[in-house]
């Protein structure tokens, strides 16, 4: 397979990052591949992009398979496009059944967007990685953000922990539900309810839509508020509004778009955006440091063949794990800090 970084496309010797900033689609696609395939090489490019990020409104869209997420995303993307925003979409499928291989079909619902130069869509599979997928998604968002996308949708199938991790990187999380699909509140994992900023009850023309709304209100403790959306806007505290949509016809997606925009405004006005982003950067920094540190540490000792020796010593009770750890760490500890 050809090398992914440092290649010259079309005779250009400009870095991928620079080309991403100029809005080069090919380079944007390439850089996301690099993030997926060779995260360390991608870091070189991502360094140059950080200063240009932070402008996009990142909207996570999640829910069980078959609730119409892709159609919803398609409708929402068109609404933002109409208002002049550039749009990025990352469709993540964390549930690929076979290791490595995946069938990614979310784009089918977004065919009209494919040739819109203001829209960039990327499908991502799980590739057997768990934690890594969330970070790859986050870095892909970073690329699209730097490329000037004003709103970026991160669409993920399912309601498990890995999906929660993925959408947590979003500013606004939309949880989609459909009446009569076994999506009763009991079956929805509590985690997904907690992360929701906006609910979309899709296929709301189905008979039991109202029941689902009421169940949801009860679960959220907002029952009695006829218009949860209004209360969400009047108080300082954000109460997730429940919007009813029919994505196939577009009905209700205007209100959904407004709810998402309201939440963005709420985040900015209340200062919560900065709080969230601060927490997110901190978490990211922590995980990057941990990764790098861990990697350096193990490489160092594995190269020296020392690692297995220490394990052997532990087994023969020649050393205890605590002393061993201290000894292994000592070459890395600066004498001044380490004391």
């Amino acid at each position: 397979m050809e090398p992914l970084s440092g290649i010259k496309i079309g005779g250009s010797s400009v870095s991928l990052a620079e080309r991403v900033l100029r809005g080069d689609v090919r380079a944007t696609g390439r850089l996301i591949s690099l993030i997926e395939n060779a995260p360390e090489e991608a870091e070189q490019e991502l360094r140059a992009l950080h200063a240009y990020t932070g402008n996009a409104h990142v909207v996570g869209i999640t829910g069980s398979p078959g609730i119409g997420k892709s159609t919803l995303t398609d409708r929402l993307a068109k609404r933002w496009r109409k208002e002049g925003f550039q749009v990025g979409i990352i469709a993540v499928d964390p549930n690929s059944p076979f290791s490595g291989g995946a069938l990614l079909g979310d784009r089918v619902r977004m065919q009209d967007l494919a040739t819109d130069p203001g829209v960039f869509i990327r499908s991502m599979g799980a590739r057997g990685r768990l934690g890594g997928l969330a970070r790859a998604t986050h870095n892909a968002v970073r690329v699209l953000d730097a490329a000037g996308k004003g709103v970026i949708f991160v669409e993920t199938v399912g309601v498990g922990q890995s999906e929660v991790d993925i959408v947590r990187t979003a500013d606004t999380v939309v949880v989609g539900l459909v009446p009569g699909m076994g999506d009763d509140i009991q079956t929805i994992k509590a985690g997904i309810l907690e992360i929701a900023d906006v609910f979309a009850i899709n296929k709301a023309d189905r008979p039991d839509a109202n029941r689902l709304v009421i169940e949801l209100q009860m679960a959220l403790g907002t029952s009695g508020n006829a218009d949860t959306g209004a209360s969400a806007r009047t108080e300082g505290r954000w109460i997730p509004p429940i919007e009813q949509t029919i994505a196939s016809t577009g009905e209700g997606t205007g209100a959904l778009r407004k709810a998402i925009a309201d939440h963005w405004e709420h985040l900015q006005r209340s200062g919560e955006l900065e709080t969230r982003r601060r927490a997110r950067y901190e978490a990211e920094l922590q995980s990057v440091v941990e990764d790098h540190w861990r990697k350096r540490f193990f490489e160092y000792w594995q190269q020296r063949g020392h690692w297995e020796q220490v394990v052997e010593q532990l087994l023969r009770k020649e050393i205890d794990p605590f002393t061993a750890a201290q000894q292994l760490l000592s070459p890395f500890l600066d004498s001044e800090i380490g004391g």
Binding site: I32, F98, S99, G100, G101, L104, R107, Q111, A114, T115
Partner: peptide
């Protein structure tokens, strides 16, 4: 897919323009 590849499927009635744009975005 079963051979370990990531396969993007775009459904019916695609124009060459849609296919080329998808191919570059999806790299």
């Amino acid at each position: 897919r079963d051979a370990g590849m990531e396969v993007i499927y775009t459904g019916l009635r695609q124009t060459p323009e849609q296919i080329a744009a998808t191919a570059t975005q999806e790299d």
